[in-house]
């Protein structure tokens, strides 16, 4: 099935590439419009401001256009473009960090906080229900999770995550890449990726729970 999907993707890629190489402006604009939201999000992982992220995306497109004649299709078009983008964004981020002495790219990921406060579980030596919830989570109202206010809470929670957790949750959950794509793009093992994803999702869930508990709806 993956082979089928890959074949379909590469046929689509070939169609887009032919159009781009033929100078088809509509095809180019369509590609830009479908990718620039995700590209800005990825660029924003590594640089300090929205303005700089826009510059990085522009710079990446320059690289894409100049590399187009030599692109051989060994990876998908999208992966190739995001590879160029990540390189541009990371080297820009490094330059920024050099010019701003105390630039803060968020906390490092060496802490290993529990996904849920241990006090919400009964102790391991509880006679009847060791390790079971003492303060179980309660159901969220379906519609309130996706309202504007909650989404802003999620956005802010992701922004607070350590860098490598933020990378993984952005690519996996926000942009919807599959785990193989994310592992390849970030140079992570499957297991490592899953650990980072688990920490990231658990923290975002915790922030949402606090938000709803603090009268954020209901």
């Amino acid at each position: 099935m993956d082979d089928l999907r890959a074949a379909a993707a590469s046929a689509e890629d070939a169609r887009i590439l032919d159009a781009l190489r033929a100078g088809d402006e509509k095809a180019f604009l369509a590609l830009v419009q479908s990718l620039n939201g995700p590209m800005l999000r990825v660029a924003s992982l590594y640089v300090s401001s929205r303005g700089v992220a826009e510059e990085v995306v522009q710079e990446a497109w320059v690289g894409v256009l100049s590399g187009l004649p030599r692109f051989e299709g060994r990876s998908s078009l999208r992966r190739w473009i995001f590879g160029i983008l990540a390189n541009c964004a990371k080297s820009r981020g490094v330059r920024e960090a050099r010019s701003t002495p105390f630039s803060d790219m968020g906390p490092r990921d060496d802490e290993d906080e529990p996904a849920v406060d241990p006090s919400r579980f009964l102790p391991p030596d509880h006679p009847r229900w060791p390790g079971h919830w003492s303060a179980p989570p309660t159901a969220w109202a379906e519609e309130q999770v996706l309202n504007k206010e909650s989404l802003a809470v999620v956005e802010a929670a992701i922004a607070q995550l350590p860098m490598n957790q933020r990378e993984v949750i952005t690519l996996r959950d926000v942009l919807g890449w599959n785990s193989a794509e994310v592992c390849e793009s970030l140079g992570l093992s499957e297991g490592n990726q899953r650990v980072l994803l688990h920490r990231a999702r658990s923290k975002v869930r915790g922030v949402l729970e606090k938000h709803f508990g603090a009268g954020g709806g209901r």
């Binding site: 996706l146 999620v154 949750i169 999702r201 869930r205």
Partner: peptide, 13 residues
Amino acid sequence: TIEASSALKGEGL
């Protein structure tokens, strides 16, 4: 939570 992350919209260029 995953669904909420996937519903985040970014502005384009």
